[in-house]
Design a protein around this nucleic acid. Structure first.
Lengths: 172, 172
DNA sequence: CCACACTTGTTGGTAACACTAACCATGTCA
DNA sequence: TGACATGGTTAGTGTTACCAACAAGTGTGG
């Protein structure tokens, strides 16, 4: 029971002070709020499960990606939205633990492929297992039909152009 | 254009290799997968927006909590599932920026209340605004009725006993 | 009333993570 | 070939998070 209870009953989602406009707008705010809060919940679970195996969230993601890929450092950094230099350290540490490995890329001698080791793969299997088990009580509260619909409705969140304000903030 | 594009098209959710069982189980896996992925998406958005204002995810949460609370260090740490010592640093930095402040607690001279400053409050308003705006294209893909139902279905994720396996691992 | 224990927050030390800037090595193209 | 672009590592900085140890304040029991 190291760090428990990531129930933050509040957070950067607006809470209720809906000036509102019409009903649809109200639901939109509530939805954003719900998405943000559920994101924190889920991240909490992932963080904790990762921590139980000495894995950070990022490491978790890396392993997840490598389950069916053999990308190069840069690609991987691209997936994660991280800098290349960050990847070096990340991969270093994971490699040191034998979870993944670096391999030369024959096509381009600059490139370095990253791939998961059997040991790492096995770990991800266990992790996924545990994640599913942990989330089960939550998902279990919905009946199959609701689950199907929820999956369907999460689709837009997953396939997002999410154009991103992208604004460098401005000083331009 | 520092770090963009946190679209990780994969991650620690199982992808498709459903041994399956029956349909309901399949949906359960898909749901877990969807929840995890959407969580990463949302966190990506929050991280980026925070970064644009030089705020980490945690700082974002802190400000969110303080919007309508005046907790003491320990309580705050409790909400976030963080160590007390972590809070000290977190609050230090935010206080130095004038976003929040520490105040003595008259009842208990050991305790230290934390509260948001007008400046900090204003910032959270802008952040929430931006978050809603950024997520709008996503939520906008659903019609109001779908939004309402999605909110409804996210409920179980937000109100979670989330008992947590808590066990060291289960290799049994 | 005073010694002991507990709570609250801070400090110090360590490690991970993420960024920038600088740097080699390789690849590409004019 | 020379100029430039790409891929990855290294060095340096700041943040986040942990644990352990501590000072100060609170609250008992004898």
């Amino acid at each position: 029971m190291t760090s428990e209870d990531p129930d933050n009953p509040d957070n950067p989602g607006n809470s209720g002070n809906s000036e509102n406009a019409d009903a649809s707008d109200t639901y939109e705010d509530a939805l954003v709020d719900g998405l943000v809060r559920s994101a924190f919940q889920v991240m909490g679970v992932l963080t904790r499960i990762g921590a139980e195996h000495d894995l950070s969230l990022t490491q978790l993601r890396v392993l997840g990606i490598l389950r069916d890929r053999r990308p190069r450092m840069t690609e991987l950094a691209g997936y994660l939205g991280l800098d290349k230099s960050t990847m070096s350290g990340l991969i270093d540490r994971a490699e040191r633990r034998g979870l993944l490995a670096r391999g030369k890329n024959p096509q381009d001698r600059r490139g370095i492929d990253v791939f998961i080791t059997p040991e790492g793969f096995e770990l991800t299997q266990r992790l996924n297992e545990e994640i599913r088990r942990t989330l089960a009580p939550v998902t279990g509260r919905l009946d199959p039909e609701q689950r199907r619909r929820l999956v369907e409705m999460l689709e837009p969140v997953l396939t997002p152009p999410l154009a991103l304000t992208q604004r460098g903030a401005a000083h331009t």
